[in-house]
Design a binder for these strands. Structure first.
Lengths: 218, 218, 218, 218
DNA sequence: AATGAATGAGCTTTCATTCAT
DNA sequence: CATGAATGAAAGCTCATTCAT
């Protein structure tokens, strides 16, 4: 990566290129994107591109760094609900993850396309997941200490539960399956809570139109 | 796709090309694979390739068809444990999925690389998942009828649990995270069972060296 | 060209190939025709093609020979109007040329496509024209002896008048301009007759529905 | 067609490529011309070709546009003989057409090769001819008003006489038949004049070495 | 006589990158 | 800083022709 131009004008140019590149990558996918598309979209010449970036791969890496940054910011700004129940916190965490994923879905799609054959990007993706699963793992351990299921392996459970959410997000926002987010989040929270042993203290959410309490029949 | 040569010799050549293509795709990824690589590996000329396949895309599609076939065969092979407990059956299903995925991991990697930007392949992948999740959904519904958690939305739960297993497999066999399969399977089965309400009737499996039964009282 | 197979079956095969080739050439033009198209149309294998013909060029040459033969036969078929007026004979000759051209228009189109860059075919085309213009020339000379315009160069006039007819035929039947043949033939005969000095002894033909006047002046 | 580079240097390169392409097309014919030949002749790389043109077809179309332009310019250049006799004007028109054709003969050869199977080029050729025949038609109509043969269909006569000249030019300059232009032009003018009814007021021109009779002028 | 699998030179076209201006 | 003309290696693909069967 280039040293990064010191001037304000240069910085703006760089940002324009990044923006243009993101547009094109998101629209065409990594392999179908040509440098020509990017410079056209940014209204600059080919030469200018190489003033700011070493290669097509370089600019992708910059965009992925940006993405990681946004995922990080998105998933930490939050949670004034320290006083909420464990279940409520859990559901909030899942909801937040889904929201952040949704906001960056197009770039996630690029990431998934590249991840399988680019070691460097794979490391980055593992890092993203790791940060998420580490938080999950810590929560599981904490809850086990307060009486949760002691037979659950925290590391594996974190991986499994994190993967569940990640895969759901991929299915929803990348593969565009037609899914009701509300029910999806509730279902995942429910599964997760039961797995860890957190009591479920909120009403059931389903996709059925009128689901209020059905104790009567039970 | 070409009509396909009727002679035995032609059929053999076609198979050789498919084999060679699979090798190269698995080694290089879809986008880094050149037709030249395939024909070199198969020890035939460029022209021969186009006798049997219309394009690089065409041969990939043939390989994916093969893959789907193998996934299908692999996941319907019977397991003769109809008399086993619900939990044992569940664990067996997960184990089988992981085994089939592992056996075809390299091609799954290709599939994941292409899926994000190829509508046709996306449909195929959705089909694969659908078959798996449909089975899960049916099992959940069946278990709910026998006293399982009635508040779980079967479709969403199936998607979530299926995604969990799929993502774990991807992490294990494609991203090659260093994971203890035994524990992974046990953990997933445990989460799954708790989610649906299936009693866990087997000893705990963890990654710790000597895990035999602890806390008999707990 | 191959010796030509002696067997009846072989002869039939050869004819089938010629027929198929003609179809394809006429449909696609010389350069867009592939041997594959020809053998497919003829329901034989590639190998068989080369049993009967040396190359794509070879089969074209055979077809052109056929064409020349048909043009020759078509334009010598006699019409028993030796007693008709000179003008009537002239008009009949033009009409006959147009009819023969029309009957072979599709192959003429091929001929015109190839003629500009194939010396051998050019010679053939020159031969066709030569035969036609020689007849015209002889007629002019004969008419000059009987009082026609002595200042007309017979060779050049033959070339010019023959070209006029040839070009008209090309415009009508290859370029498919929408032209009334009856008027076209009458107009050409009129021009020709005036050029050579032949008295015009038939009623005027025009495209106008009701040709008035004419007797009065005659 | 590409936007076309704005710089002077770019414009020059484009012209060089056009020139090179014309050379090669004229030498080899359309179908035997490869992009490799063009870029070799122009001393540029393959890539450069595609900076300026989309394809081999594209550059041909540009050349044909140029050709049409030149034909147009060539045939409207005025000749200041408004005071000449009708016959003299007629002969001048034919002479001019032959000269313009001769100057562009090599490209006309390309045009004829492509015209039979390319609808777009066919339209162009029809346009060229139309412009010429329209002028002829107008002249015929004008002359008919001043006492010319009223029984000649102007449209058909124009087509026939125009075709005559066109075909002669093709024979002379493309097929390279050995023809004395002077006599050719004189003969065509004579035919044409007689057809329309224009009095022939110039001495006879023939190919014979010692033209007898002509005493009057001698 | 017939087959059709196999060839491979050679085609058109693409595109990331460079560098003189 | 910015340009954009130029590159050239390499890609996918075609097709007339050959030859072992």
């Amino acid at each position: 990566m280039r040293p990064g131009p010191p001037t304000v004008k240069g910085q703006r140019r760089r940002d324009e290129l990044l923006k243009a590149a993101q547009d094109v990558f998101e629209r065409e996918g990594y392999f179908d994107t040509r440098v020509t598309d990017i410079v056209t979209q940014a209204h600059v010449s080919h030469g200018t591109f190489y003033v700011y970036f070493d290669s097509k791969d370089d600019i992708l890496r910059c965009l992925i760094d940006q993405l990681v940054e946004e995922l990080y910011v998105g998933s930490t700004e939050e949670e004034g609900l320290h006083e909420a129940s464990a279940y409520a916190q859990l559901e909030a965490t899942i909801r937040q993850f889904m929201a952040v994923y949704k906001a960056n879905a197009k770039m996630m799609r690029i990431l998934e396309q590249v991840v399988a054959f680019d070691d460097e990007v794979r490391e980055i993706r593992l890092g993203i997941i790791l940060r998420f699963t580490e938080r999950i793992k810590a929560a599981i351990v904490a809850f086990q200490a307060r009486g949760g299921d002691p037979d659950l392996d925290p590391a594996h459970a974190a991986q499994a539960l994190g993967g569940m959410v990640g895969d759901y997000a991929f299915a929803c926002y990348v593969l565009k399956q037609d899914i009701d987010e509300r029910v999806a989040i509730a279902t995942m929270a429910r599964i997760w809570a039961k797995a860890v042993g957190i009591p479920i203290d909120v009403p059931v959410v389903t996709s059925k139109p009128a689901p209020r309490r059905r104790k009567a029949s039970a």
